[in-house]
Design a binder for these strands. Structure first.
Lengths: 319, 319
DNA sequence: GCAATCAGGTCAGTTCCTGACCGCATGGAG
DNA sequence: CTCCATGCGGTCAGGAACTGACCTGATTGC
């Protein structure tokens, strides 16, 4: 076994189990105890923090250091990571979204096929179609394909379904992925139209990297995010929800989380949220079990009334 | 720079960018082109699949091989992974949950403090208090602390809030984490009570590894999962939901996802789900916008009627 | 055809790695 | 307190492995 390989195996061992007695390590690596000590020293010189406990029942332990060591993962751990990243990236909720995509595409491009199949199997059972969001869910495969094409400056082909439902074929030079609101956009130079465009990812189908690389052009905007924002005439409609609820502020806040603010107000409290989709506030209100008054928007009042009427009919029919 | 370090840097470079021209690599690594070729050979001998494209504009490329190479991550990628795993693990939805925990505890224990802080910051903005689940959310810190204690066979101390709200102090030998339904349990040998117990994680506070290690005992059960199942007298109440809905099966299925099955039935369709919590089916039904008949359970019919009545009152008050 | 790239053989010099030995420091168990 | 298992590090000599330089081919795109 070469030295490099041995170092990797040592790192791997130190990552799986907290304490390793020296003799056990040296036996596993098939080297003398002296060489093991030298290997540990080498790791330390590389910047990894290896604690050592002396005395009887002592041993070695890898501790968090200044930088992240190369992660040596079991197959199942890798699958778990991929699945987690997949849902994180496709739901596009947080501020880490684009890094999630980057990490995902890195992991995916390195995962052997059998692990990728395993991941698909798990993900197909896991992917919850985000109950609260009406936003279209992005296909993870599309996302990673585009991310890799951006990273590699590779010309890309895909079909695009524009607003009017006409499907067009595109050949573009992809620049960057942007996540805005709950949507993903691809900023790319359209070769056939000879201009920059932004594409909604949920309207892209059958993306194919061509293998052909290109030199980056100048984007006529501050950055990709700005370009997308310029291009969007009408932002997705947002509702400013304001509802008076007859219950303790704390109890309501527990069910709402960070997607709304709850303020006390006399006997009850006031719930304020900004949402794209009225289903989620409706659910919160239904679950609250408390009397309420919808102050705005009118659409929510209508929706509540509609649900009330419909559910009342159910009540009569089923009783 | 030592050979081992150089190999790691080469792997890292190959992981970040798809194609690398040989001369650029050899320059970055500060070695001759010949040595670079030898390094690539070494990688191949270690089992990694490095593709090479000859001819002008050729280069090297790391491809998915038989096994996952050590992942060399950027800080932000690591944060994204940790956040993803954290939500995957704490929401305990999928079948990968325990592997998520293991991967998470591995990543966390290796992450330098600054990255962990960064992760906390992001997670605090991200953690959606799972709108659909009434189940208590498990603290990620508790989860990973316990996972590590299990892995390391380390005696653990914590406070436990039993059903009757009395807080007791425990010293246990942790064996394994089990995720059942939407809950996490710790199977451990309680040293003071001299017997095996299972603890609900959402009732554990302030867990502290003592550093003291122990020899594993025999669990009086098939495995940890079986032990937990035996111990739980009353499983969380599950409702078998069956509702007739007057809309196309496909449209409804899109909103329900894998958490229920939709079958066509004459003009409309039938929705069947198994849930712990009736809020989620109520929301699906509210969002459907269609007439419906609740066939079971009666609790759902009551709930629908209650919401219907309450929302109707809102309708009158707001109009 | 030419230029750029990867592939791989050979060789000599040098580096570095290994195992063996040594004495010392540390911490827990008896 | 004493003993023992463990980690720490110095030194040394032999040998393995690495490196760069040089060479010849093969492949690919312009």
């Amino acid at each position: 076994m070469s030295t490099s390989e041995r170092m990797l195996r040592l790192l791997s061992l130190l990552q799986t189990h907290r304490y390793w007695p020296g003799p056990e390590l040296s036996e596993r690596l098939e080297v003398s105890a002296r060489t093991l000590r030298r290997d540990v020293d080498r790791l330390r010189e590389l910047g990894y923090t290896v604690d050592a406990v002396r005395g009887a029942a002592g041993g070695y332990q890898l501790r968090a250091g200044g930088s992240l060591p190369p992660l040596l993962l079991e197959d199942e751990e890798a699958v778990a990571i991929a699945v987690g990243l997949r849902t994180a990236a496709t739901s596009a909720v947080s501020g880490t979204d684009d890094w999630s995509v980057q990490a995902l595409s890195k992991v995916l491009s390195l995962m052997p096929p059998r692990l990728r199949r395993q991941m698909d199997a798990v993900a197909s059972q896991t992917d919850s179609p985000g109950p609260w969001e009406g936003a279209p869910v992005v296909d993870a495969a599309v996302l990673t394909t585009l991310a890799q094409a951006c990273r590699d400056s590779e010309v890309l082909r895909f079909d695009y379904t524009a607003r009017e439902a006409e499907v067009t074929h595109r050949r573009v030079e992809p620049l960057r992925l942007v996540s805005l609101g709950r949507r993903w956009y691809l900023v790319a130079y359209d070769r056939d139209r000879a201009d920059w465009r932004s594409f909604r990812l949920d309207r892209i189908t059958a993306p194919e990297p061509t293998g052909q690389r290109f030199r980056a052009r100048d984007l006529p905007a501050e950055d990709a995010l700005a370009f997308v924002q310029q291009g969007i005439r009408r932002m997705p409609q947002r509702y400013a929800v304001r509802v008076r609820v007859a219950m303790a502020a704390d109890d309501l806040a527990a069910g709402v989380g960070r997607w709304g603010t709850v303020t006390e107000d006399g006997e009850g409290c006031v719930l304020e949220m900004n949402v794209d989709d009225l289903d989620w506030p409706v659910m919160v209100l239904a679950g609250s079990g408390a009397e309420l008054v919808v102050e705005s928007p009118p659409e929510l009042a209508e929706k509540v009334a509609e649900v009330g009427a419909r559910f009342s009919r159910v009540g009569r029919a089923a009783s």
